[in-house]
Design a protein around this nucleic acid. Structure first.
Ligand SMILES: [Zn+2]
Ligand SMILES: [Zn+2]
Ligand SMILES: [Zn+2]
Ligand SMILES: [Zn+2]
Lengths: 136, 136
DNA sequence: CTTGACCTTGGACTATACTCCACCCTTTAT
DNA sequence: ATAAAGGGTGGAGTATAGTCCAAGGTCAAG
C-alpha cells in the first residue's frame, strides 16, 4: 500500500508543499519513487508524518523534531533518560518564554491601568508618556 | 545639537544598522543630512528612538510600534480611549499566546511524567510512543 | 486524442528583526 | 599627506515555517 503525495497529504491534513518542504529539510523522505518520479510513501512514512505533526502539536520546532526523529530511529541505542532529558529541556525553554511573556503582560497592564481611557485628546496620555521615557 | 548615526546608536544602545533598518521601515528618519549625506538626528529623534525601544521592551512588534507612533504624532486628534484600546488589544493577544504556551507546557509535562527516564533502551519509551500516534 | 487531475522541479515570496558584507566616500587626527 | 574612524548604499544571509507560481511531465477516463 503505497501512497502518492496527494493521498498522504490529505490523510495527514497538510499540503503537498508542506510534505516536500519537510523532505527538503530531512524530516520525511518517500520510500521510493515511480519510474516517472512520483513520490511513493509507505506505512512507515505515514507513521513518521504522524510523529512529526504530534510533535509540532506539543510545541517542538521542526529543528527539534529533527533531533527527536533521530532519537526515534536510533532508539535501540538511546535510553529513556535521553528522551526524557530532551523533553525536559524543552519544558525549561517554554517555561522561560512563559515568564518573559508574563512580564510583558504585566507591563502592558500597568500601562493600560494608568490611562484614563477617556475621549479627550491623547496629548496627556500616560501610555504615550511612559513609552517616550527610557525605562531601565 | 545634532547627532550622527554612531552617536545616536551608542546613546540608544543599538547598532547603526538597526537605526538604518528602522528608517527603511518608516520608524525613524533623521531630521536632516549633511552635504555629504551623513544622517543628522535631532533631540526629537532621540525621544523617538527611546519611544521605539520602550515599546519593544513591553512586547510590541515593529509593526505595532509603527501604529503606536502614528497615535503618538497625531495625539491631538486621538483620544486616550484610542491609545488604551490599542494596548488592551495587545494584552488580549499576549493572553491568548500565553494560553497556548501553557497548553504546550502541560502536554510536555504529561509526556515527561509518563516516561520512566531510565537507562534501558528507549524502544519502550512512552514519549516516543505517544508522539507516533496521531492525537486528535 | 484530448481533457483534467495529479505529479515534478526550481525559485520567488511572506512575516519578523535584524546582521553582515563589499565597495566607496568623508572627516579627523597625526 | 596619509591613515584610521566613521558614514553611505545596495544586497545577501539568518532563523522559522511554510505558500505560491510557472513550466512541464504523467495518467486515467470519455
Ligand atoms: Zn487620558
Ligand atoms: Zn491615556
Ligand atoms: Zn522507559
Ligand atoms: Zn521513556
Amino acid at each position: 500500500m503505497m501512497l502518492k503525495i496527494g493521498a498522504l497529504a490529505s490523510l495527514a491534513g497538510v499540503s503537498r508543499d508542506t510534505l516536500r518542504f519537510y523532505e527538503k529539510h530531512g524530516l520525511i523522505t518517500p520510500d521510493t519513487r515511480t519510474d516517472s518520479g512520483y513520490r511513493l510513501y509507505s506505512e512507515t512514512d505515514v507513521y513518521r508524518i504522524s510523529f512529526i505533526l504530534s510533535a509540532k502539536e506539543v510545541g517542538f520546532t521542526l529543528n527539534e523534531i529533527h533531533q527527536l526523529l533521530e532519537l526515534e530511529v536510533t532508539k535501540d541505542d538511546k535510553s529513556c533518560h535521553d528522551v526524557k532529558q530532551f523533553v525536559d529541556n524543552k519544558i525549561q525553554v517554554v517555561n522561560q518564554r512563559l515568564g518573559e511573556m508574563e512580564k510583558i503582560k504585566q507591563s502592558l497592564k500597568t500601562l493600560s491601568n494608568a490611562c484614563c481611557g477617556g475621549d479627550e485628546p491623547a496629548t496627556h496620555c500616560t501610555i504615550l508618556g511612559a513609552l517616550s521615557v527610557q525605562n531601565r
